[in-house]
Amino acid sequence: MSLQFSVLASGSTGNAIFVETDSHSFLVDAGLSGKQMEALFQQIDRDMSKLSGILVTHEHSDHIKGVGIVARKYKLPIYANQKTWQAMDPLIGQVPTEQKFTFDMETVKTFGGLDIESFGVSHDAAEPMFYVFHYGQKKLVLITDTGYVSDRMKGLISNADAYVFESNHDVQMLRMGRYPWNIKRRILSDVGHVSNEDAAIAMAEVAGDRTKSFYLAHLSQDNNMKDLARMAVSQTLEGRGIRVGDQFQLYDTDPKTPTILTAV
């Protein structure tokens, strides 16, 4: 049984993740234009028309920019919770009713042998939620766009094989940077984004015996850098007795280039 994924794009300019099993495939968010989304799928040698649907995490534009376009063109079902639908509906254009599906928070939807579990996060959106994919003995967790990782979240996402995990900003870069204070305060708040160090602390607490990889995701283009994120996360983990490369690997994601399609 094969569970594979690619982080197609990750960052403040647009987010999209592709997940596939032997019989189903899903796009989690489509925060880029339809043309950009098609180019990303070509790079991983996959056909958008064969998608089983689009799973939406929340209504911010860097997650839904291409949702309506892609869904209309390829006649794909869209899954989101009710509050997200209410916030997103006016932003994605007309979508036929038969393509609209509700996926409530803290529930599981089953597609063949694939169980997709939704869970709430702490972000300034209507009802933001992310997903855990269970397929056979494999577990893949997607978690970005959260101001902190609560004990409840940690319990749901612990001991996965692979994680796409937010490592949004370096606190010093953010504090010293060009953003107005109200934006800085929002990012640093409990409904903003997780810093490199806080991400690493949460990683140390959720990683288990079977954990092989963390993909550092949703890096701010103004307040972070790949090398800095990797170094900060590695140092924080080492301070907690975890050597990167021994227990698990860290991987980069990119706003424009997909990660290699990888088996969990």
Rank of each mutant, 00 (worst) to 15 (best):
T236F: 01
V206D: 07
F41G: 01
S25R: 12
L27T: 05
G68I: 06
P90S: 05
V141G: 09
S234A: 02
L250G: 02
P128K: 00
G241T: 11
N15G: 02
A229M: 09
S10G: 14
V19C: 07
R46W: 02
P77A: 10
I78V: 15
L219Q: 11
N182M: 13
R230W: 06
D22S: 14
N15L: 02
L228G: 09
T146F: 00
S220T: 07
G208S: 12
R243S: 10
M88T: 07
R210M: 07
S2Y: 08
Q94A: 11
S33E: 12
I17W: 02
I187N: 03
T57I: 01
N168S: 15
K73N: 12
L91W: 05
H123F: 15
L51Y: 01
A125G: 15
S118E: 09
V56E: 00
Y163G: 03
A30N: 09
G155S: 11
A16E: 01
T57H: 00
I54S: 00
V7M: 06
E98G: 03
T211Q: 07
D198G: 08
G113W: 03
S61M: 08
G208W: 09
V194W: 00
D47L: 01
T236S: 03
V244L: 13
Y163V: 12
E98L: 05
L51C: 02
M203I: 14
A229I: 07
V132G: 01
K226E: 12
Q137P: 08
Q172T: 15
T110A: 13
W85C: 01
S195K: 00
F26R: 07
G120S: 13
M173P: 07
M203C: 06
L40D: 02
L216S: 04
F165L: 11
Q86A: 14
Y74L: 07
E238Q: 14
K75C: 06
A16V: 02
T57Y: 00
A207G: 06
T21G: 06
G155V: 05
G155Y: 10
A229Q: 04
S167I: 03
E98W: 03
M173S: 15
T57E: 01
E166I: 10
I64E: 00
G34A: 10
R152N: 06
L8W: 08
L140E: 08
I69Y: 11
F26H: 03
P180K: 02
H169R: 08
S25V: 05
H63T: 01
H134G: 04
D254A: 04
I242S: 11
S2Q: 10
V56A: 01
M153N: 13
